[in-house]
Design a protein around this nucleic acid. Structure first.
Lengths: 211, 211
DNA sequence: TTGCAATTTGACCAAGTGGTCAAAACAACG
DNA sequence: CGTTGTTTTGACCACTTGGTCAAATTGCAA
């Protein structure tokens, strides 16, 4: 062929291609995640990503046409998983249980996917140039919807009164802190302490939320 | 002279020099804070810092010998102010009042010095290459000391039982969140909401801490 | 005013950057 | 085997980056 990778629909997520294409693209995203999470978009270099992925730079650019394409692909994948736990919150469930489960799930994500958390944090810290629309659109709507649910619970007397939006901020801040500030946590504690964090957050939010 | 800026003690903080030296150095730090906070160390460029400070690049390098020198100076200034509020926590005071005042103060710092908060966040996110020793040394000791105080309060029955270290993480995470994730907060809320945050945190920590 | 130190700058450099391209190497399949 | 399309690479390019330097300009005290 003419040297350009043949993708049926260039704009769409790249789930197509040969076995090699899938493997290499996965390796690139994996490496990109590591590098972007640590250095941010501007701080990351194609050379480092290529090295980390075990490819030469031109070879990397054969699979993704630019640095930004890799970054965008990562952010897109990320956001789907990121918003998911909040969607899982069940308006029919027991309020405190539902919220504690959400906290727990977010904390587990910080433990299991710290790079994703840091990638997100870096994007926000630098002003969210890429994902501001999503924040103002999808995320905002989701928060509003959840806020209504929580307000309902409070009105029914099944939850202690709280500002639902700031409550969500509290949950995000505290759970993501264990991924984003991992270095600091380890420095202060002398090592990671997932169980301690889980117990602490469970206790805290129980006291806050129980009527 | 020979073109090198004359500083009595090159390693020491630069409080010496002519009026112009003080002004320009302050302008550089100011600009550096803005740029480093937004882009991180690797993402920041001397050109942008110089531009923001209204200097040419060589002129900037006349006052600070390298990019890292500016960054280091900023981090050093930052850390002093950063640790200060925790030092102000009075072991003799009323436990809940003391801790709520600490929360409040940290929140005010996020409002008044958001760039400092983001600079710190960026440094930690990229693995704290510059300040890890401080975290493992001074910060850790300070936390240990404070943990003893809090444990004492709990033992005396003047505070509901909490893990003091994770409590500090909770406070840091939630207060700094309003600076570091400012973009997200605005996107979700449609604007900043310091008073709302202050009320929420006050309420939350009251519920957590009161016996 | 004059002289000297402090300050500022334009020109420059080596290294690193994102990205291109033609050609080579490889895989697959008849 | 040969052919055809896929994958990989070395060489290369324009641009940015952190940093240098000698020379020009400015501030200031005697």
């Amino acid at each position: 062929m003419d040297g350009k990778l043949a993708t049926p629909r260039p704009g769409e997520p790249k789930r197509t291609g040969t076995r090699i294409q899938k493997e290499k693209r996965a390796a690139i995203l994996e490496a990109g995640l590591t590098v972007f999470a640590e250095a941010g978009f501007r701080g990351a270099t194609l050379d480092r990503i290529a090295g980390e992925a075990g490819l030469s730079k031109p070879n990397l650019l054969y699979y993704y046409p630019s640095k930004e394409a890799i970054y965008d692909a990562l952010l897109r994948d990320l956001l789907a998983n990121w918003l998911d736990p909040l969607k899982c919150l069940d308006p029919e469930g027991e309020p405190v249980t539902e919220l504690l489960a959400y906290v727990r799930r977010k904390l587990e994500m910080s433990r299991d996917f710290p790079r994703e958390s840091r990638l997100f944090a870096n994007e926000i810290l630098s002003g969210a140039p890429e994902i501001l629309p999503v924040l103002e659109g999808e995320l905002r709507e989701l928060v509003e919807k959840t806020a209504l649910v929580i307000d309902g619970w409070v009105a029914d007397g099944r939850l202690a009164p709280v500002d639902p939006r700031h409550l969500l901020f509290s949950i995000w801040a505290q759970t993501q802190h264990y991924a984003d500030f991992d270095v600091q946590v380890r420095a202060v504690l002398g090592g990671p302490d997932f169980d301690g964090a889980a117990r602490h957050l469970d206790l805290m939010f129980r006291r806050i939320l129980e009527v």
